[in-house]
Amino acid sequence: MTTLIDRYVYTVLRRVPEQQRTDIDRELRTSIEDAVEARVSGGAPPDTALQQTLLELGDPDRLADGYADRKQYLIGPDLFPIWQRLLTMLLTVVLPIVVVIAVVIQVLDDPAVGPIIGAAVSSAITVGAHLAFWATLVVAVLERTGVTRSALRGGTRREWSLDDLPRYEPRAIALSELVAGVLWPVLLIAGLVLQQFTFTDVPVLNPDNWTFWWPYLIVVLTLEALYTVWLYRRGSWSRAVTAANAALAVLTTVPLVWLLAEEKFFNPAWVSTQDWGSTADPLSWLTGIVLVTAIVGALYDVIDVAVKTERARRGVHTPVPGTGAEYTNPI
């Protein structure tokens, strides 16, 4: 029969590294017996003395954790901010992108409301769970391999310095907007070129336009990207910016609208290969959607830049993102 002491000691040893077990076994037993002896000589009955001693030692698992000196947390305070930022970024930036892609694929495959909602929900849950799990696992492993925050930040063991403070200077556009403003035209150009050869058996857009309009669009889109770089380096809004932006919008949108209206935009061969279900006149539907998108997008862009310029000209305070403070954007 195992005694109460045996049961207690074995429970502790279960969670202690093997090479320490013999030593801790002997030492812990002696310590318990010493304590029991002291209580008995103080007048307590042996059974009660043992029970009280063990109760005082408390949860054997906790004692074992003390002996093993192991971390009793998944992610400690040093790496927690990094884990939090990583998780926020993954769930607010990466997850929506993946969900949108899943929905687009579903729309191309079978554009019905039920499956689309299903694709959105199931991809959000599955991908969200994966992102959270892997991010947590990676940081927990870093925590256990002794990687510190400063090692992660600098690569080398660089301490935080004043240069790490964001500048919060009035800028026309932020770095993220610069990246988006360059990436978007590049993606459009890539899409324009690639649709000729890949994606579908026949090109989606009218191949006849390669004689002039598609190269022209590539040039204008390149100008859009250059405009964004210029605006970023310039650092402030002005009437010149408004004019350049409006000119680019006209140069892009007017030919698009004309091509669409003349039904020279889409490739008729592609339209006829698609199964449009019960839609009587798919080309006019497609044309209408793209037409409205192009015009609304261009108008929004022109008005947005004009409003920002006007606010800057009048010296209206502009909030600094995420701080609640404001700065005046001088022109």
Partner: peptide, 9 residues
């Protein structure tokens, strides 16, 4: 006791 014994080791 349960903090002292591990501390000694």
């Amino acid at each position: 006791a349960n903090t002292l014994y591990p501390l000694l080791r």
